[in-house]
Design a protein around this nucleic acid. Structure first.
Length: 746
DNA sequence: GCATCGACTTAGAAATAGGACA
DNA sequence: TGTCCTATTTCTAAGTCGATGC
């Protein structure tokens, strides 16, 4: 059983490994600290474990025992202190002021405009009985039928657009809210097979951030201690910095340097000649002003807050939805990113640079030719309006930091996202069928005569076993120095023929995505170890470990092994299969709902550890733990008092020997049991929270775990789905919730 | 074969909402 | 009713991977 202990990296289901290295693979730790913890607490149960304890009772006793002796030692930090990786300490960021949009020539929500044309979900859609799969022929037939339906519908469109649209301007949301049963089951329909993403797309375009509002005259900027009025352009950029004064970013040299350089570009020549050093600038008055503003916002009356809320809701209704193929779908991010200072993660060479304001002439609109095109704000034009139904985005622009394209796309609850998500898990399930063959293949390849094949095989082993990311090459100097599997360098790996009583231990230590540190010591098979030794020969720290490999080569090979297979499918597969295995092992019919949920969270946590999903400990973590501890202490006192009372009652019963006193004993006994139970729950909660301190569950839940596993589990064990998925998550996974039976197997 | 681009998914932090509690 | 926490939502950076062009 998985005991109440710190989570360690799981051992995935590896038959070949287990028969060859049974004992060694027990220790697939996540870090030094986990290694230590494991030693202290025994290993996390793994998928192949032969030591599954059968009794839940035993488990609970052990749990209690462990809790009693819980090691209070502070956790060793995941991150190294050499500044190479992201410091996850949260700094405070002063929030931007919220302003009501004004007409500045930019797009802003316009009241009482012609309402968005909306055809209710299901208007034309013929509801079909629930089913999980449709066979191919049927699918094609259906899609064809739909296409002709579509054409018919499209013909009717213009009329509806003007008439019905107006009539239905505000009713849509209410209707949707009141009648959730009307939700469109896109998963019962056919997918497009021609590569197109939609047939009809209509939307209102993006919402621009409010224009810059100059500071009141009383708020001054000081240079060399002297007040100085800045030009509006320079002042705006200065406010970006002023707002971040409390943030750790402003202590970083690169950030300051980049900011100052870009700021000077916005200055008048006079300002430029005066302001030559950042350290002589004093933004504190501005900073205080924004802090006061944010405070004032918090102090707003209920009515004021309500008004803002209503206004936001109105904007959401108007701009937050589009019509795609006859269905009103929620847009994910319909607001244009406001200007500010770039917050790159880790040691990002561009942090602090000015992220410029996006104007309508920067924007490309994508919509149907025959839709009502979004209007550019008065006095402006879009860069382009195109009609590309081979893509899913509605709006795009090029950002000025990396020169990359940003998009406005649909919400995860939309058909277009959901279909893709579903497909992703189906690919992972196909991998399940092929994984043994693929593993056998790469094991064979470890012995290849060709170096490139050996490298490919060892890299794939890491991707499979450790759920590493592929690791594309990155532009040096343009982004933070992070790596994935294929881009690992010599400096990221150490080989230990023997370590902590284990043979062939590989120590991995590198900055991964978002500069999150990956640290792991893992015993590998001898052949892998020998290969790694070979790869390292005559190389320096900065050299690539896999110099004959890149993600393109790897993915091409994977494509040959299985249709649709890429490196990231392994992460999805291993995450989902781990969840399923863990849920099987941890769930017990003896458990009550909270205990079952705890098991679920543990299974989820096992995946998060596997995928190295870390988070900064919440700012209030220590405090909240302290509060919980206080509750526990109080409960303990209560328990000892109850025990005393029980003892006294027993003594009474012994002397009195009557029914009443016997009853009293029973009552007191029950009280003791009840309080014990409550205490245990609190302690479990504390452990759960402690275990979660630096682990983020959300990412895996949202992106890696086939929701059907969770839905099936909920159904099987009678756990309400709401306990596992919140509203947003239920919307995203509506397809899985609707189609999954309790016997679903990933 | 490579560099670059474009589209899309995955990611943690920050902002905000809302519920528990005094 | 206000305050404090936690949970949820929003935001946008940072990945993956296929297409394209030379």
């Amino acid at each position: 059983m998985l005991h109440l202990k710190k989570q360690t990296r799981l051992h995935l289901g590896w038959p070949e490994d287990s028969h060859k290295h049974k004992d060694k693979h027990k220790h697939r730790e996540h870090s030094h600290k986990d290694l230590k913890r494991d030693k202290e607490r025994g290993n996390l149960k793994n998928g192949n474990s032969e030591h599954r304890s059968s009794s839940e009772k035993k488990h609970r006793e052990k749990e209690k025992e462990r809790l009693k002796h819980k090691d209070k030692q502070k956790e060793e930090k995941f991150r190294s202190s050499d500044g190479k990786y992201r410091d996850q300490e949260n700094g405070f960021v002063s929030s931007l002021s919220v302003k009501v949009e004004e007409d500045n020539g930019y797009h802003q929500p316009i009241k009482h405009e012609k309402p968005l044309k909306r055809e209710r979900e299901g208007d034309d859609y013929e509801h079909k009985p629930k089913k999980v799969k449709v066979d191919h022929e049927k699918k094609v037939k259906r899609r064809k039928q739909e296409d002709s339906d579509y054409e018919e519908r499209e013909e009717k469109k213009p009329k509806k657009r003007t008439k019905e649209g107006k009539k239905d301007s505000t009713g849509g949301k209410k209707k949707a809210k009141n009648e959730p049963q009307e939700k469109w089951k896109w998963w019962e329909e056919e997918k497009y097979t021609d590569g197109s993403k939609w047939r009809f797309l209509e939307h209102k375009g993006p919402v621009f951030p409010p224009p810059y509002e100059p500071l009141p005259d009383r708020i001054r900027f000081y240079y060399d201690g002297k007040a100085m009025k800045l030009s509006p352009g320079a002042e705006e950029v200065a406010t970006f910095y002023a707002k971040m004064l409390d943030h750790e970013y402003t202590t970083k040299d690169i950030f300051r340097k980049n900011f100052f350089k870009d700021w000077r570009k916005e200055m008048t020549s006079e300002e430029k000649s005066k302001i030559t050093e950042l350290k002589r600038c004093d933004f504190t008055e501005m900073h205080e002003y924004f802090k006061a503003q944010s405070e004032a916002r918090k102090q707003m009356s209920k009515e004021e807050k309500q008004k803002i809320k209503e206004e936001n809701e109105r904007i959401l209704q108007e701009y937050g939805y589009c019509v795609m193929d006859n269905h009103r779908e929620r847009i994910g991010n319909f607001r244009i990113e406001p200007p500010g200072l770039f917050r790159g993660r880790g040691d990002h060479p561009k942090m602090g640079k000015l992220k410029r304001r996006i104007r309508p002439q920067d924007i490309i609109i994508n919509c149907s030719k025959d839709s009502v095109h979004p209007k550019a704000p008065p006095g402006s034009r879009w860069k382009e309006v195109r009609h590309d139904n081979k893509v899913t985005w509605l709006v795009s622009w090029t950002e000025n930091i990396q020169g990359s394209i940003k998009y406005i796309m649909l919400n995860p609850s939309s058909r277009i996202k959901g279909e893709k998500d579903w497909q992703k898990y189906e690919t992972a399930r196909r991998l399940k069928k092929s994984v043994e063959r693929i593993r056998a293949q790469y094991r064979e390849d470890w012995r290849s005569k060709e170096m490139r094949i050996r490298q490919r095989a060892v890299a794939l082993y890491f991707i499979d076993k450790l759920a590493l990311r592929a690791g594309n090459e990155k532009d040096e100097g343009e982004t933070a120095d992070t790596v994935g599997c294929c881009s690992l360098r010599v400096e990221h790996i150490r080989l230990h023929p023997q370590m902590d009583g284990q043979d062939y231990v590989v120590e991995l230590d590198f900055p991964g995505k978002d500069s999150i540190r990956y640290y792991n010591k893992v015993p590998v098979e001898k052949r892998v170890f020998k290969n790694l030794q070979l790869f390292l020969e005559n190389k320096q720290g900065k050299d690539d470990l896999f110099d004959r490999l890149n993600t393109s080569i790897l993915n091409k090979h994977l494509q040959d092994l299985m249709d649709g297979l890429t490196a990231k499918v392994f992460r999805t597969y291993n995450a989902s299969i781990t969840l399923q295995q863990q849920l099987k092992e941890l769930s017990s019919s003896d458990d009550n709902i909270p205990e079952k949920i705890l098991s679920y969270n543990r299974a989820n946590r096992a995946v998060a550890v596997l995928c190295n999903h870390q988070r900064a400990p919440p700012k209030t973590f220590e405090k909240s733990m302290h509060n919980l501890q206080t509750k526990i202490d109080e409960k303990k006192k209560q328990l000892s008092a109850a025990k005393k009372e029980l003892k006294a009652a027993k003594a009474d019963a012994k002397t009195l020997r009557n029914e009443k006193s016997k009853k009293a004993v029973e009552m007191k006994k029950k009280a003791v049991e009840r309080i014990s139970e409550q205490l245990m729950k609190l302690e479990v909660q504390a452990t759960d929270r402690e275990e979660n301190k630096q682990i983020a569950l959300g990412t895996s839940k949202l992106n890696y775990l086939d929701p059907r596993i969770s839905v099936a589990w909920c159904k099987k064990w009678g756990v309400p789905i709401e306990k596992i998925y919140n509203k947003t998550q239920r919307e995203k996974f509506a397809w899985a919730i609707d189609m999954t039976d309790e016997d679903f197997e990933f």
